[in-house]
Design a protein around this nucleic acid. Sequence first.
DNA 1: CGCTAGTCCTGTCTGC
DNA 2: TGCAGACAGGACTAGC
Length: 268
Amino acid sequence: MPELPEVETIKNNLQEILPLRIKELELRREDILRSRDYALKELAGQSIEEVSRRGKYLILAVDNGLFLVFHLGMSGRLYIQEEELTLLEPHVHVIIHLDKPFKLLYQDARRFGGLWLLKDIDSFFSRLGKEPLSEEFSPRYLAQILKGRQTAIKNLLLNQSLISGLGNIYADEALFIAGIRPDRKADSLSLREIEGLCCGIKEVLAKSIKYRGTTFRDYRDGRRQPGEFQKHLQVYGRFNQACPTCGQPLKRSRIGGRSSHYCDKCQQ
DNA sequence: CGCTAGTCCTGTCTGC
DNA sequence: TGCAGACAGGACTAGC
């Protein structure tokens, strides 16, 4: 699914077309709306002035203080389509009709994603951990959240209440950059390894944003274009292929129910 | 509290 | 070609 770099890319796409005046939000499947602090009708005639991201969530700020929050789950897409193009792809669950020659579509085959209509986003996002690209996300913070944890480091990187925005792809890539096996107990990392991991996380996320995210299958950006970072992945999805550093075939195993990709030789 | 396994969905790929 | 089963980028929960 879209992880931090993919959601950031969509955010950047949408920022270029602001402001967006909403004519109507058409909800084509009720269960996509996860919770609601206000009625859909309140959105009519309002304008979206600001788009932001928190973890893997995309936040559209409406000018009367309301918020539209999307999470794209595994297969969600949020993209613009010309207004006169009435033919819809399957699984388009939300259409935001705009005062412009295009509309904003939310498409999600697996429906793990969803939409929240919120008045107070602070409490909604209070359960999320630090943003990995922020200055606050430091080796010191990482050391603090690893301390005493017996779970595999990979599991910890995916825990959104500790670090918000990392998913399976970038967790594997960051661990490879840092030379740390994904099944290492979190508590067993040295300070040096923690520093390397902190750098690795920031590095891989920043680079992926530069390449507009990773498209394995489903992901598309706000213009419905695939990303390019899949060409730069070093371990994810490369089971049995040569390690980019040492040439040995890469390994794959299951950690916390998720597939993990790593090099037996380069990661300790 | 920490952690694991199961669950929600559909689409795609693999192997028989 | 058909079909069953595994698997997929996430996150919540029940239960130990």
